[in-house]
Amino acid sequence: MLEIKNLHVQADGNEILKGLSLHVGAGEVHAIMGPNGSGKSTLANVLAGREEYEVTDGSVEFLGKDLLELEPEERAHLGVFLAFQYPVEIPGVNNTYFLKAALNSMRKERGESELDAVDFLKLVREKLKVLHMEESLLSRPVNEGFSGGEKKRNEVFQMAVLEPKLAILDETDSGLDIDALKDVAAGVNALRSPDRGFLVVTHYQRLLDYIVPDFVHVLYKGQIVKSGGKELALELEAKGYSWVEEQALAAESK
């Protein structure tokens, strides 16, 4: 469903992604791992349509469409969802109001009728349970005053409500305690299905004990330098990112 070819991306004049290619099929879970500064978050944000990044070369096709041509909201309507590494606090915008507006914009695009307040609340309550979230979070402003764990839960909760076709998780596990991590993973696993793809960006192997990937890719200096199955993550944990760096250096010197 997602086909990234030779993607080059700059931010503030620095090239961050340098010819990245990746294919994600429906039903597959891909983990992207890599050291700090390798371009993991850039990849996630470029796919969601953040404007600060400039694509200088390459292509991204999603469900047969040129993703890079689309506005962020059009990508969302097509089924792209980004769980933010740093979810944004928006004082004055009520969580329920926001989520209902988001869901109804999706439904409108799909030609479905808007959900009324009763049906919406019913849907939302089910999803809250999976994530062990308090219903009171709904009446608060978006992410304002949320703890780190609440913010990340809220991202996965939004994902569960919006039911995207491609879910991108940008370090959703970073900084979480084990309970929150389990909740977040349960939320993601509940969404796994044959017609949905996942791109799980993470710094730590621990997440992959709970969200078991089909493929693991190692990103280094803006390129995927190694791909494999879930065992690659374990190997990476055992040997550390320095192992990848050495291999990459060796490959360069050849």
Binding site: G49, E73, R75, I90, A101, A102, S105
Partner: peptide, 23 residues
């Protein structure tokens, strides 16, 4: 950042601006 966050959830740019001004 707030604008991008709202738009990434499917809310169009104008509605997102409106939401933030009301907020």
């Amino acid at each position: 950042d707030s604008l991008f966050y709202l738009r990434s959830r499917g809310i169009d740019a104008e509605a997102a601006r409106r939401m933030l001004v009301h907020a």
